[in-house]
Design a protein around this nucleic acid. Structure first.
Length: 224
DNA sequence: TTCCAGGCAATAC
DNA sequence: GTATTGCATGGA
């Protein structure tokens, strides 16, 4: 009997704690994996520590839509150096935002997304948003909403990305491309622990980068 | 040069 | 519900 928990443990044994979500406003306790951001916090789930870190995570989640994380780091550093990692600054000068986030691609579209989210974020007045509220913001789809809830608000919501679908369909553990169906499967099979969900999703991404980029996917996959 | 990257919205069936 | 397309930079 293959359980999701057994797969999680195999991934953890092989790749170790991933330290997600990386933060630039924090001296991490492990070396940077790629790029310039060193704020990976290995086996420490006490982040975000404050509202600044929470907002930074949300911005990073939006910028990394269909984009390499190293490119997102460049944009985050640009925003940080120019003191643009706040909703007030973002809604105040959208043209400057476009310039600063160019490295992470789709900069015209994403600047609009950051504007929409910043307006929404301010309207919350620091309270926890619901999933439906997040999904009502143009630019926030299912994966982005769930990533924000899981990593910025520590809510036990399982994030389903293209890698999750690729790996678990390939292993014949699921047979579905439906987002909500897959999310429900993981959330029902696993203990509802946000720390487990954060680590599991990060490990899925790491495993996919190693074995699920080039076809045939997962040849000799050690997970099963 | 080509391919890919921690998606989303709009559109067409 | 599912499939297709535009959005863009930068690294392998």
């Amino acid at each position: 009997m293959i359980t999701l928990l057994s797969i999680y443990n195999k991934l953890l044994n092989k790749y170790g704690y991933q330290g997600w979500w990386p933060l630039i406003e924090h001296e991490g306790n492990n070396p940077t994996k790629t790029g310039s951001i060193k704020g990976y916090h290995v086996n420490d789930y006490s982040f975000p520590k404050n509202d600044f870190q929470r907002f930074e995570i949300c911005i990073g989640v939006i910028l990394t839509q269909n984009t390499n994380w190293v490119n997102v780091e460049k944009s985050l550093n640009n925003l940080y150096k120019n003191d643009f990692l706040s909703p007030e600054k973002i809604i105040n000068n959208i043209e400057k935002v476009k310039e600063l986030i160019k490295p992470s691609g789709y900069f015209n579209i994403k600047a609009g997304y950051l504007f929409n989210f910043s307006k929404f974020y301010l309207s919350l007045k620091a309270r926890l948003p619901s999933r439906d509220e997040l999904l009502s913001v143009k630019g926030i789809g299912k994966e982005t909403a769930d990533s924000i809830l899981l990593y910025a608000y520590n809510q036990p919501i399982f994030v389903v990305d293209v890698y999750t679908k690729r790996i678990f369909n390939n292993l014949r553990i699921i047979n579905s491309i439906n987002y909500e169906e897959i999310r429900a499967f993981f959330e029902n099979e696993l203990p509802k622990d946000y720390r487990l969900f954060q680590e599991f999703h990060a490990l899925i991404v790491e495993h996919a980068k190693n074995h699920y980029i080039k076809k045939p996917y997962g040849l000799n996959d050690f997970l099963v």
